[in-house]
């Protein structure tokens, strides 16, 4: 397992080149100033979820998947390692994004680009913001990782968009039906946030595990 975590890190490390870092710093700053400090967390999670696809890309591009086999890394370990590394990467990028968003927001405020956005100082708000971002990453991985493991990167990158299209359509249609009742639901969520987040976290973690089982089955007989 350590081998696959190291190799995935070696691949994702390529995202830490200067050109990417500058790109994210600039993009992150723009988002933090325009959308608020907490939006930095979502920028971070976007980076994390994008980075999760890198090992699949290089797995096919250079047939690294075959190399893993010759190193004695089982296909099951590849799946397990990738679920762990994807989540770890998403958590780290979320927290970094959140902190960076705060720095930019305060800095921008001090330089006169509007009021400093101090929401992150509220630990509870910051915690729920980060948790929501990480849960989003878990949901994303639960959907996309089996697609990539089953179809590979080339085909999977297009197929992975389909679930989101379905969710957006369903969400849009659902909002139309819910109407004013949505405000009542939202109010309930806000007043019972801890319990709601706990239940959602448990569900998402369970979903992540089921997704892992599906990926392991799909990848078990893959040939490279």
């Amino acid at each position: 397992m350590k081998k696959i975590l190291w190799l995935d890190w070696m691949i994702n490390k390529m995202l830490l080149s200067w050109k990417y870092i500058i790109l994210w710093l600039v993009l992150g700053a723009f988002i933090a100033v325009s959308a608020g400090s907490l939006a930095g967390a979502y920028m971070g999670v976007l980076v994390g979820t994008s980075a999760a696809t890198m090992p699949f890309l290089y797995g096919e591009k250079t047939n690294m998947n075959a190399w893993y086999v010759t190193l004695g890394i089982s296909r099951k370990d590849v799946v397990r390692g990738r679920y762990i590394s994807s989540l770890l990467f998403a958590v780290v990028t979320t927290l970094v994004g959140l902190f960076y968003g705060y720095l930019i927001s305060v800095g921008a405020g001090l330089l006169g680009f509007g009021n400093p956005d101090l929401k992150m100082i509220d630990a509870k708000v910051s915690f729920f913001c980060a948790l929501a971002a990480i849960l989003f990453a878990i949901l994303d991985f639960s959907i996309t990782l089996p697609i990539y493991f089953g179809m590979g990167y080339q085909k999977g990158q297009y197929a992975a968009i389909i679930p989101y299209i379905i969710i957006c359509i369903a969400g849009g249609v659902g909002m139309g039906f819910v109407g004013d009742k949505g405000l009542v639901v939202l109010g309930y969520i806000v007043t019972h946030l801890w319990w709601i987040m706990l239940v959602v976290s448990i569900i998402f973690v369970a979903l992540y595990y089921v997704s892992y089982l599906v990926s392991a089955k799909l990848f078990a007989r893959k040939e490279f």
């Binding site: 390529m14 591009k61 250079t62 190399w67 004695g72």
Partner: peptide
């Protein structure tokens, strides 16, 4: 897995990231 670790592999193109 233990046995495979004793093998050195050379393919027509390297598996490493370019």
């Amino acid at each position: 897995a233990d046995v495979v670790g004793k093998i050195g592999v050379v393919m027509d193109s390297p598996y490493y990231s370019g």
